[in-house]
Design a protein around this nucleic acid. Sequence first.
DNA 1: TATTGTTATACTCTATAACTATA
DNA 2: TATAGTTATAGAGTATAACAATA
Lengths: 167, 167
Amino acid sequence: MNSSRQPADATGPVPATAPRGAAFLLAQIGAHAAGRFAERVAHLGLTPADVGLLRMVAGQPGRSQRALAEDLGVVPSRVVKLIDVLEGKGLVERRRSEEDRRNYELHLTAEGRSTLGAVSRAAAAHEDALLAALDSEQRGHLLGLLQRIAAEQDLTPGVHPGYRARG
Amino acid sequence: MNSSRQPADATGPVPATAPRGAAFLLAQIGAHAAGRFAERVAHLGLTPADVGLLRMVAGQPGRSQRALAEDLGVVPSRVVKLIDVLEGKGLVERRRSEEDRRNYELHLTAEGRSTLGAVSRAAAAHEDALLAALDSEQRGHLLGLLQRIAAEQDLTPGVHPGYRARG
DNA sequence: TATTGTTATACTCTATAACTATA
DNA sequence: TATAGTTATAGAGTATAACAATA
């Protein structure tokens, strides 16, 4: 409103306000991407956390809940509830280990594999929509740059930091 | 352990498990970046949300809490508590509007401007650490690609989606 | 005595709705 | 009657710690 009048508290130059660097854009676009992906898998009754866990069980069947907790960087009691959900939907199966009956071995069910296929299709559509501004060459270039950053920052492939406590 | 033995449930080819696309990397690196930035401003007693709000007040002094809530996409009652924190630290000031005494006009204090300077230095160090894998030319290229995506996805400059409810 | 998984509890964050004051 | 801000309450999500079964 008073664009022509100097505000009374402008005692000095106002600092740059809107962050313009790549770090902020990565955080902003990353959160946006996570939100859009969540929308795309919601109709499957899954959260992004569920999807990540489903993928890990698919990739390394037979692992224990404690091992999964270790990989994700979360407390074991959280894995209990995450697996409860997936088991309740019939996507994952707990099998008592024969070698050490304290453990469960986690496996995908047939329906779990089918659901994971639907997730993959949703992920592909998501990728395409998110990168709509870029042509094929630019997408490849972006992927390469992101892979370098992820490797240098020691990010575990496939593990989203969102599993860990906020921060 | 049993890498030579076929698991009993391998009834078919295991689906691709670790997401390898740019969309996932953006979400993963973005969450990582947000976490590292949170660590860097923690010694100032600020969360990333506090920083974002501080920047908005600096950029557009005199706005009302309701206007801020609108910009951030959050409910007004949340802005109350966010501003309570910043006011309690002496960084932001509530001034009753003379024109409409229902409103507050929000302004930075001198200490708020000083703190924002410290935030900018932290942000610069953060940017440099996050992009350590890239040389100057690559950083410029990345920035350009990210800016295209952000514009096409209609992301408000400077507003992190993390303010809004999870999703 | 140590370890896997579970349950119970508390804490944090956020939205919803009721309320005060100004208009 | 409508609007800016506040407060009170409830809900979701997560970690912490105590617990049972197995080793």
